[in-house]
Protein backbone atom coordinates (compact mmCIF):
# COMPACT_ATOMS: atom_id res chain seq x y z
CA UNK A 1 0.00 0.00 0.00
CA UNK A 2 1.43 3.39 -0.95
CA UNK A 3 2.01 6.24 1.51
CA UNK A 4 -0.93 8.27 0.27
CA UNK A 5 -3.35 5.38 0.77
CA UNK A 6 -1.90 4.70 4.21
CA UNK A 7 -2.55 8.33 5.21
CA UNK A 8 -6.07 8.02 3.77
CA UNK A 9 -6.57 4.83 5.79
CA UNK A 10 -5.67 6.65 9.02
CA UNK A 11 -7.78 9.71 8.14
CA UNK A 12 -10.94 7.92 7.08
CA UNK A 13 -10.62 5.33 9.86
CA UNK A 14 -10.46 8.22 12.35
CA UNK A 15 -13.45 9.96 10.75
CA UNK A 16 -15.36 6.68 10.93
CA UNK A 17 -14.50 6.35 14.63
CA UNK A 18 -15.70 9.89 15.32
CA UNK A 19 -18.99 9.23 13.53
CA UNK A 20 -19.48 6.01 15.52
CA UNK A 21 -18.75 7.73 18.84
CA UNK A 22 -20.90 10.81 18.26
CA UNK A 23 -23.74 10.28 15.79
CA UNK A 24 -23.62 6.50 16.28
CA UNK A 25 -24.26 6.63 20.01
CA UNK A 26 -27.15 9.05 19.53
CA UNK A 27 -28.75 6.99 16.75
CA UNK A 28 -28.32 3.80 18.77
CA UNK A 29 -30.77 5.15 21.38
CA UNK A 30 -33.42 5.37 18.64
CA UNK A 31 -32.61 1.89 17.24
CA UNK A 32 -31.17 3.49 14.12
CA UNK A 33 -27.65 2.04 14.20
CA UNK A 34 -28.16 0.93 10.59
CA UNK A 35 -27.86 4.59 9.54
CA UNK A 36 -24.44 4.83 11.21
CA UNK A 37 -23.41 1.60 9.51
CA UNK A 38 -24.63 2.98 6.18
CA UNK A 39 -22.52 6.12 6.58
CA UNK A 40 -19.52 3.90 7.32
CA UNK A 41 -20.18 1.87 4.18
CA UNK A 42 -20.45 5.07 2.13
CA UNK A 43 -16.99 6.02 3.48
CA UNK A 44 -15.64 2.61 2.49
CA UNK A 45 -17.13 2.78 -1.02
CA UNK A 46 -15.86 6.30 -1.53
CA UNK A 47 -12.32 5.45 -0.42
CA UNK A 48 -12.27 2.28 -2.53
CA UNK A 49 -13.02 4.36 -5.61
CA UNK A 50 -10.64 7.15 -4.67
CA UNK A 51 -7.63 5.04 -3.66
CA UNK A 52 -8.32 1.75 -5.46
CA UNK A 53 -6.52 -0.18 -2.71
CA UNK A 54 -8.03 -3.54 -1.68
CA UNK A 55 -7.51 -4.11 2.04
CA UNK A 56 -7.57 -0.40 2.85
CA UNK A 57 -11.16 -0.52 4.11
CA UNK A 58 -10.38 -3.35 6.54
CA UNK A 59 -7.53 -1.19 7.82
CA UNK A 60 -9.92 1.76 8.24
CA UNK A 61 -12.26 -0.52 10.18
CA UNK A 62 -9.39 -1.65 12.42
CA UNK A 63 -8.49 1.99 13.20
CA UNK A 64 -12.15 2.87 13.91
CA UNK A 65 -12.64 -0.25 16.08
CA UNK A 66 -9.50 0.53 18.06
CA UNK A 67 -10.42 4.20 18.58
CA UNK A 68 -13.93 3.18 19.66
CA UNK A 69 -12.36 1.51 22.69
CA UNK A 70 -10.88 4.86 23.78
CA UNK A 71 -14.25 6.62 23.78
CA UNK A 72 -15.53 6.98 27.34
CA UNK A 73 -19.18 7.26 26.28
CA UNK A 74 -21.45 4.55 24.95
CA UNK A 75 -22.94 1.20 25.73
CA UNK A 76 -21.18 -1.97 24.75
CA UNK A 77 -17.79 -0.85 23.43
CA UNK A 78 -16.79 -4.43 22.66
CA UNK A 79 -19.98 -4.96 20.58
CA UNK A 80 -19.36 -1.74 18.65
CA UNK A 81 -15.73 -2.60 17.89
CA UNK A 82 -16.65 -6.10 16.74
CA UNK A 83 -19.39 -4.75 14.47
CA UNK A 84 -17.06 -2.14 12.93
CA UNK A 85 -14.31 -4.68 12.27
CA UNK A 86 -16.73 -7.19 10.76
CA UNK A 87 -18.27 -4.54 8.52
CA UNK A 88 -14.80 -3.82 7.16
CA UNK A 89 -14.16 -7.52 6.59
CA UNK A 90 -17.57 -8.04 4.95
CA UNK A 91 -16.89 -5.07 2.66
CA UNK A 92 -13.57 -6.55 1.52
CA UNK A 93 -15.23 -9.91 0.81
CA UNK A 94 -18.14 -8.40 -1.14
CA UNK A 95 -15.76 -6.23 -3.14
CA UNK A 96 -14.03 -9.40 -4.37
CA UNK A 97 -16.99 -9.72 -6.74
CA UNK A 98 -15.97 -8.07 -10.05
CA UNK A 99 -18.66 -5.37 -9.85
CA UNK A 100 -16.52 -2.87 -11.77
CA UNK A 101 -17.28 -4.45 -15.16
CA UNK A 102 -20.95 -3.53 -14.88
CA UNK A 103 -21.74 0.16 -14.98
CA UNK A 104 -25.49 0.37 -15.68
CA UNK A 105 -27.72 2.29 -13.25
CA UNK A 106 -29.69 -0.86 -12.33
CA UNK A 107 -26.41 -2.58 -11.51
CA UNK A 108 -25.28 0.33 -9.32
CA UNK A 109 -28.60 0.29 -7.44
CA UNK A 110 -28.53 -3.52 -7.03
CA UNK A 111 -24.91 -3.38 -5.89
CA UNK A 112 -25.88 -0.74 -3.36
CA UNK A 113 -28.75 -2.79 -1.95
CA UNK A 114 -26.78 -6.06 -1.80
CA UNK A 115 -23.60 -4.65 -0.32
CA UNK A 116 -25.20 -2.30 2.23
CA UNK A 117 -27.70 -4.96 3.33
CA UNK A 118 -25.18 -7.79 3.70
CA UNK A 119 -22.47 -5.66 5.35
CA UNK A 120 -24.92 -4.37 7.97
CA UNK A 121 -26.33 -7.84 8.57
CA UNK A 122 -22.80 -9.27 8.89
CA UNK A 123 -21.84 -6.62 11.46
CA UNK A 124 -25.02 -7.17 13.47
CA UNK A 125 -24.85 -10.99 13.46
CA UNK A 126 -21.13 -11.20 14.20
CA UNK A 127 -21.61 -8.96 17.25
CA UNK A 128 -24.22 -11.36 18.57
CA UNK A 129 -21.89 -14.31 18.05
CA UNK A 130 -18.56 -12.89 19.17
CA UNK A 131 -19.64 -10.79 22.17
CA UNK A 132 -21.15 -13.74 24.09
CA UNK A 133 -18.20 -15.93 23.06
CA UNK A 134 -15.73 -13.40 24.43
CA UNK A 135 -17.64 -12.15 27.47
CA UNK A 136 -20.21 -14.75 28.52
CA UNK A 137 -21.50 -17.89 26.82
CA UNK A 138 -22.89 -18.30 23.30
CA UNK A 139 -26.31 -19.86 22.75
CA UNK A 140 -27.49 -20.60 19.21
CA UNK A 141 -31.13 -20.01 20.29
CA UNK A 142 -30.23 -16.41 21.23
CA UNK A 143 -28.73 -15.89 17.79
CA UNK A 144 -31.79 -17.36 16.03
CA UNK A 145 -34.04 -15.00 18.00
CA UNK A 146 -32.35 -11.92 16.56
CA UNK A 147 -32.34 -13.05 12.90
CA UNK A 148 -35.77 -11.48 12.04
CA UNK A 149 -34.61 -8.23 13.67
CA UNK A 150 -31.35 -8.30 11.66
CA UNK A 151 -33.17 -8.99 8.39
CA UNK A 152 -35.70 -6.23 9.05
CA UNK A 153 -33.28 -3.53 10.16
CA UNK A 154 -30.74 -4.28 7.42
CA UNK A 155 -33.47 -3.35 4.93
CA UNK A 156 -33.04 0.29 5.97
CA UNK A 157 -29.35 0.01 5.05
CA UNK A 158 -30.26 -1.73 1.76
CA UNK A 159 -32.60 1.11 0.80
CA UNK A 160 -29.97 3.71 1.73
CA UNK A 161 -27.49 1.73 -0.41
CA UNK A 162 -29.83 1.87 -3.43
CA UNK A 163 -29.47 5.67 -3.44
CA UNK A 164 -26.00 6.02 -1.94
CA UNK A 165 -24.13 3.78 -4.40
CA UNK A 166 -25.11 5.72 -7.58
CA UNK A 167 -24.52 8.94 -5.63
CA UNK A 168 -20.97 7.89 -4.71
CA UNK A 169 -20.25 7.07 -8.37
CA UNK A 170 -21.48 10.54 -9.35
CA UNK A 171 -19.50 12.30 -6.58
CA UNK A 172 -16.26 10.48 -7.45
CA UNK A 173 -16.48 11.75 -11.05
CA UNK A 174 -16.40 15.37 -9.86
CA UNK A 175 -13.79 14.99 -7.13
CA UNK A 176 -10.30 16.40 -7.73
CA UNK A 177 -7.94 13.55 -8.56
CA UNK A 178 -4.74 15.46 -7.78
CA UNK A 179 -4.06 17.27 -4.52
CA UNK A 180 -0.68 18.75 -3.75
CA UNK A 181 1.27 16.42 -1.45
CA UNK A 182 2.05 19.07 1.16
CA UNK A 183 -1.60 20.07 1.44
CA UNK A 184 -2.81 16.44 1.43
CA UNK A 185 -0.54 15.17 4.20
CA UNK A 186 -0.90 18.32 6.29
CA UNK A 187 -4.68 18.41 6.12
CA UNK A 188 -5.04 14.65 6.60
CA UNK A 189 -2.76 14.64 9.66
CA UNK A 190 -4.53 17.62 11.23
CA UNK A 191 -8.00 16.17 10.62
CA UNK A 192 -6.95 12.76 12.00
CA UNK A 193 -5.60 14.43 15.13
CA UNK A 194 -8.83 16.39 15.62
CA UNK A 195 -10.83 13.14 15.30
CA UNK A 196 -8.64 11.36 17.87
CA UNK A 197 -8.93 14.23 20.35
CA UNK A 198 -12.69 14.36 19.89
CA UNK A 199 -13.02 10.58 20.38
CA UNK A 200 -10.81 10.42 23.46
CA UNK A 201 -12.46 13.45 25.08
CA UNK A 202 -15.89 11.87 24.61
CA UNK A 203 -17.51 14.20 22.07
Amino acid sequence: MNRKALMGLVLFGSVWALIECSLGDWLHHYHLSMITASIAIILMVLTRYLYKQPGMQLGMAAIAALLRQFNPIGGCLMCASIAILMEGLAFELIWLIPWGKYQSMTMKVSKGIISFYTICAAGYISTHILTPLLMARFYISDLISIIPRVLASSTIAGIIGAFAMPAVYAIVEYMPTKIENKLYYGAASALSLICWLAVVSGI
Binding site: T106, S110, I114, Y117, P148, L151, T155
Partner: peptide, 24 residues
Protein backbone atom coordinates in the same frame (compact mmCIF):
# COMPACT_ATOMS: atom_id res chain seq x y z
CA UNK B 1 -24.75 -10.72 -13.86
CA UNK B 2 -27.13 -7.72 -14.08
CA UNK B 3 -30.21 -9.91 -13.75
CA UNK B 4 -28.77 -11.98 -10.91
CA UNK B 5 -27.91 -8.82 -8.97
CA UNK B 6 -31.41 -7.36 -9.45
CA UNK B 7 -33.06 -10.60 -8.30
CA UNK B 8 -30.82 -10.90 -5.22
CA UNK B 9 -31.37 -7.23 -4.30
CA UNK B 10 -35.13 -7.59 -4.72
CA UNK B 11 -35.19 -10.78 -2.59
CA UNK B 12 -33.22 -9.12 0.21
CA UNK B 13 -35.66 -6.21 0.35
CA UNK B 14 -38.69 -8.56 0.33
CA UNK B 15 -37.19 -10.74 3.10
CA UNK B 16 -36.47 -7.61 5.14
CA UNK B 17 -39.99 -6.21 4.72
CA UNK B 18 -41.61 -9.55 5.65
CA UNK B 19 -39.38 -9.79 8.75
CA UNK B 20 -40.34 -6.24 9.72
CA UNK B 21 -44.07 -7.00 9.39
CA UNK B 22 -43.58 -10.17 11.45
CA UNK B 23 -41.76 -8.25 14.21
CA UNK B 24 -44.52 -5.63 14.34
Amino acid sequence: MDKVAIVVAFLLIIVGIVSGINLR
